[in-house]
Design a protein around this nucleic acid. Structure first.
Lengths: 337, 337
DNA sequence: CTGAAAGCGCTAACAT
DNA sequence: ATGTTAGCGCTTTCAG
């Protein structure tokens, strides 16, 4: 077996010996201190190269009280994490920003956390800070994490106490604009499939829808709720159709739900957009797979991820970034409305 | 701000003081040693509770030379990691097994690794071992990881030196059986869309296909290659059709590629399975979304993940699990063949 | 610019 | 059963 696993890793002491300097000097060059003579610097570099030296993280973090690691906590089961394209782009954005920094990213899947392992991990000093995406009301362990290290949330946290840092998209304005597009199109009976009231995104998009309806002076049309998944969208659609009330347009609070709704519409022989125009929210990849393609509100997920990482890194650097950042959405007009 | 971030975390020393015992005794109860009197045990427990004590990971790992952490390194970009359902279930399986252990899992996305951060991380003693899924020929940093800690691979590693631990599915037998199913169906002109020769799964499934064709004494039919993605399947399908050679069945080395192929077939007005029978590989969720639903070879991805974690944990515990584990596949017959 | 010395918080022999 | 004593490998004053 071609392996170094037996040979113990080189220590700073050994590097110092080979370079003919003290531990401190080695530490200085490793940490990029300028106060090192070029001679010493060169000798140390050679020794590091020769011994294939990598500083021991535990020792370093013990002495410096910093880990240069950031946790990305996802309180979702793997099905959800991997099933929803939204996570893919948020995580990409976070990862992209962290890659450009000196931090490493630890993705932690913390759906059902029996022994409170995730919180324990964070509280044990394993990371300097945490990014939390998809925060649910029931996730109490997040509070314990937030009590231990700086946290940045994706989306407005469930219960905002002062001092919470988060990056969100303008869900109210987005939903309002999306619905307004339906109004401009000449629709008069604009129903909605909204998200869960337990999630801020659900609440805010519902608010935006209501504002737009009020703006237009329209009378109420049937509304149902889902949980952002395709299946729940289909169920909600059937509920709405069952009311038999007039309907010529639909604002749907997520693309996944819009897909579910359109499947039901199609099965019922109701044409989109001729009979019912539909506009979704997210501009996820699946918006391109519906027939017709989905008109939807684009959410800058990748940018949101990058921004979250940015804010956390700034906080860890002792800076004072804005507590809340709101990103704009953009209406993408395709075939469905 | 309701926070403990200012208040320094309690140390073992403080717990010992409150409990009226020595550091060692506290350490013993934390680590579950039996040699502690029930009185001391109770006192320590109370002190831990009171001070909300969580052992410092860095200190612990420095002293014990073990981190109780396992890295899951995925040498893929996020698009691929989140786009391919195969990863979702492998990761689920790994996560499930690790959750049941005392280890924590660190998912590390290591697509383009500029500064060799991932290898450095592992070599810095941050984890006790690593699980590597999706190993490409070009991923040389994996070698540096394997030189530093025990590694278990998902799928046969690109270059097997002795001493490599891996968990794979029986790709040769699977592809052979899948193709044999086509033969049994009465097909005589069985083409194939195979995977990339740079990946063992690509090579092995190609081998299985060839064996089945030989078994049946069939003459060669058109073959093309993709890279396991939907798009590449579509491209390969067009290549095959362009040959104008007779074709009544197709073995496709991944469900994603099969989907791409079926889209092209549909666009050309070629009926599945009447004109061309199609069998895929993976039994990913998308096999249920094609029309007709895809007949495919089920790969036990979740079990594979669990097994990989299992093998690594055994190695870390000083046991000697089997170096290679091969899991069986199972033909799932649906509408496409 | 460089070295010596003192820990960081914990585990692990070694005594008792 | 429990306390004492050394470190683990590194950063960080503090002298010089």
């Amino acid at each position: 077996m071609i392996s170094d696993q037996n040979r113990a890793a080189a220590t700073i002491e050994e590097v110092a010996a080979v370079a003919g300097v003290s531990r401190s000097t080695v530490s200085r060059v490793v940490n990029g201190s300028t106060a090192v003579s070029s001679g010493a610097l060169e000798a140390v570099r050679r020794a590091i190269e020769e011994l294939n030296y990598v500083p021991n993280r535990a020792a370093r973090s013990l002495a410096s009280r910093s880990t240069m690691a950031i946790a990305l906590v996802v309180p979702e089961d793997t099905t959800r994490l991997f099933g929803d394209p939204f996570f893919a782009s948020v995580v990409s954005g976070i990862n992209a920003r962290i890659s450009r920094s000196n931090y490493v990213l630890n993705l932690i899947m913390a759906s059902a956390d029996p022994g409170d392992k995730t919180a324990q991990y964070v509280r044990s000093g394993a990371v300097d800070g945490a990014i939390v995406v998809s925060h649910h009301t029931s996730d109490t362990f997040i509070d314990r994490i937030a009590a231990a290290v700086p946290v940045v949330y994706g989306g407005r946290p469930v219960r905002t106490r002062g001092g919470d840092y988060y990056v969100d998209v303008d869900n109210v304005a987005g939903a309002r604009d999306a619905t307004a597009h339906l109004v401009q199109r000449g629709c008069r009976h604009i129903g909605a499939i909204l998200g869960p009231p337990s999630m801020p995104a659900g609440v805010d998009r519902a608010e935006g829808y209501r504002l737009a309806i009020a703006d237009a002076g329209l009378s109420p049309a049937p509304v149902a709720r889902g949980d952002f998944t395709t299946e729940s969208g289909a169920v909600a659609m059937r509920e709405i159709l069952a009311t038999k009330e007039p309907l010529d347009a639909l604002f749907v609070a997520s693309d996944l739900m819009a897909r579910g709704a359109m499947q039901v519409l199609g099965a019922e022989g109701i044409r989109v957009p001729d009979d019912v125009a539909v506009v979704g929210f997210d501009d996820s990849p699946i918006a391109l797979t519906t027939d017709p393609q989905l008109t939807t509100m684009r959410q800058p997920s990748f940018a949101q991820g990058e921004c979250m990482a940015d804010v956390l890194i700034a906080r860890l650097a002792g800076q004072s970034p804005a507590e809340v950042t709101i990103l704009d959405t953009e209406l993408i007009i395709r075939g469905s409305a």
